[in-house]
Nucleic acid binder design. Structure first.
Lengths: 107, 107
DNA sequence: ACAAGTAGGTACAATTTGGTACCCTATAGA
DNA sequence: TCTATAGGGTACCAAATTGTACCTACTTGT
């Protein structure tokens, strides 16, 4: 991910810092329909390694875009869902998806 | 910039690959109102070095998000503007900006 | 004569990001 | 007993990205 500049003066910069990174957009997108467990995300986000998934969801949690809920069970269960702030991003990501689809079709 | 994966199966991924990177969002945003010259961009995109500006605009040009026009004059003159494809991204970036502003205000 | 404004280019170094391999706990099932 | 599954952690390494410093050519202004 792009290094967080705590004094980002530009809101465009600020926003891109929070959803930049190789997997963040996809993770947010896949969470749009509700709650997902760690293993589900790992299966659906193609190519992601456990390390990167953990790292990425932790960053999203720190930025308060998702909520991470740990159940103290064995075997462990951890659920992820969008926060209210995170949900606000979904329409934009949807626009990006539509744009991306059109571009991909044009190639 | 995130490495381009030519076989990006996911349109969300595809889109983020094209506007990821430390300065791309801001450059596109600053070009929304029309044509800008290299030097103008350098002044307005705070913190960017000449090398990164050149590199970034070339990548945006390759991805057909901006159009680069060189005038064979001395001193040199190079103008940048959004392509039609690039213009389509502006509403999205604008929403990101609004979201970013709100978040920044909440901190 | 010399600096500044143009729009860069290049080599190298530093930083950031991502990947590999291996480790953990505890339980259910064969 | 051995394996699989859950959701990770950690050390080390490789790759990608960004930054630093210095260079180019040509013209106008002082």
């Amino acid at each position: 991910m792009i290094k967080k500049n705590k004094t980002a003066y530009c809101p465009v910069d600020y926003a891109f810092q929070r959803i930049g990174g190789k997997y963040k957009g996809r993770i947010l997108w896949y969470l749009k329909d509700g709650i997902m467990r760690y293993g589900e995300l790992k299966r659906i986000v193609e190519g992601i390694t456990p390390k990167m998934l953990t790292q990425t969801v932790r960053e999203l949690e720190e930025d308060k875009l998702i909520i991470r809920k740990v159940y103290k069970e064995v075997p462990p269960r951890v659920e992820y869902r969008l926060s209210e702030t995170g949900k606000e991003l979904i329409p934009f990501i949807d626009q990006m998806r539509i744009w991306g689809e059109r571009q991909m079709a044009m190639e």
